[in-house]
Amino acid sequence: MFRRACLHRMLNLGAVVLAGFLTACGGAEQQADGFEATSAALQSADSAEAAASMVVYSPRGKPVSEAGFVALGAPEGLGGRVLEGNPQIFARIDYAKGPVAAGLFKATTGKIRIVFPFTEHATILEGEVTLTDEAGNTHSYKAGDSYFIRQGQVIVWEVKGKQVIKSFFNTVEAP
């Protein structure tokens, strides 16, 4: 129940999309209402979270495991606006407590404009993404690169390859 309440609070603040898009381990199917699917997925993460004391996201020489990713629905439903393509977004939450969440996020080819609903530190694990802020500063991030974005910043997120996978650590700041 705590996870459901926490998730709804974060989603209501727009706390999902790109970098930290909240769902969980367990692979629940996407339902018509993405919030309900996400909530159900979070509940299934309880046992997995308790069982693992350490999670290795990107073992050397091996691809990131995509087990447990859950579709987040359309980017618009989570605070983003698609500018190009038909990007699909997915996430897996490995830790969530109060306003803090950590896990993996995946996005497929496309361009999305997002007002970041949380403050986030992220590291790209696979693929490449180009981020552009409102001032026009642009940077492309590849595997091993990290970035930090504050809640409320407007970012254009562009994936040109097949997909990008990042690990993230988010916190939703009080308004």
Rank of each mutant, 00 (worst) to 15 (best):
G103Q: 00
I89R: 01
A122K: 08
I124V: 15
G27E: 10
R9L: 14
G103K: 01
P59V: 04
E49F: 12
I155T: 02
E128T: 05
C25R: 14
I114V: 10
A102E: 03
E66W: 00
L13N: 15
A48V: 13
V159R: 12
A32N: 09
N86V: 08
I124A: 02
A24I: 00
F21K: 07
P87W: 05
E158K: 15
A91G: 14
G27C: 08
G98T: 02
G20C: 09
R3M: 12
T38S: 12
K142V: 07
L125W: 02
E134P: 00
C6T: 14
E36V: 13
P117D: 06
G110R: 06
N12D: 15
T23A: 10
T23G: 05
N137F: 12
A37I: 09
F118S: 02
L72I: 11
D94C: 00
G79I: 06
G80T: 02
K142H: 14
R60G: 14
H8S: 15
L78T: 12
V55F: 00
L131A: 00
R150N: 10
M10N: 14
A28E: 08
A135H: 07
L42Q: 05
A48N: 07
S47I: 10
F168L: 08
T123C: 03
P75T: 09
A67M: 13
F35I: 13
A48Y: 08
I93F: 10
D33K: 04
K106T: 06
E29S: 11
N170F: 05
K160Q: 15
I93L: 10
A28V: 15
V17T: 09
H8V: 14
S146W: 04
A135G: 03
T132P: 00
L83Q: 01
T138L: 08
K62R: 15
P75K: 05
S44G: 10
K166F: 15
S44E: 11
G61K: 04
V70S: 11
T109N: 02
V55A: 07
M10E: 11
I149E: 00
F105N: 07
A32V: 13
V164E: 09
E49T: 13
Y141A: 04
T108D: 05
L18G: 13
A41V: 02
A45K: 09
M54P: 05
F69H: 12
A15W: 12
S65R: 15
R9E: 15
V70H: 12
S39L: 01
A143L: 06
S44K: 07
K106P: 00
D94A: 01
A143H: 01
G61Y: 08
W157A: 11
K142F: 15
K111S: 06
E76W: 00
Q151N: 06
L18P: 03
H139S: 10
Q163C: 14
K111D: 04
L72G: 14
S53K: 06
G136T: 07
S65D: 14
P87C: 06
I165W: 12
T138K: 08
A174F: 15
Q153K: 11
R81L: 09
E158V: 12
A50C: 05
A15Y: 10
A67D: 13
G73H: 05
P175F: 10
E36M: 05
H139N: 09
G152L: 04
M54L: 04
A67Y: 12
V156N: 03
F148R: 05
F21W: 10
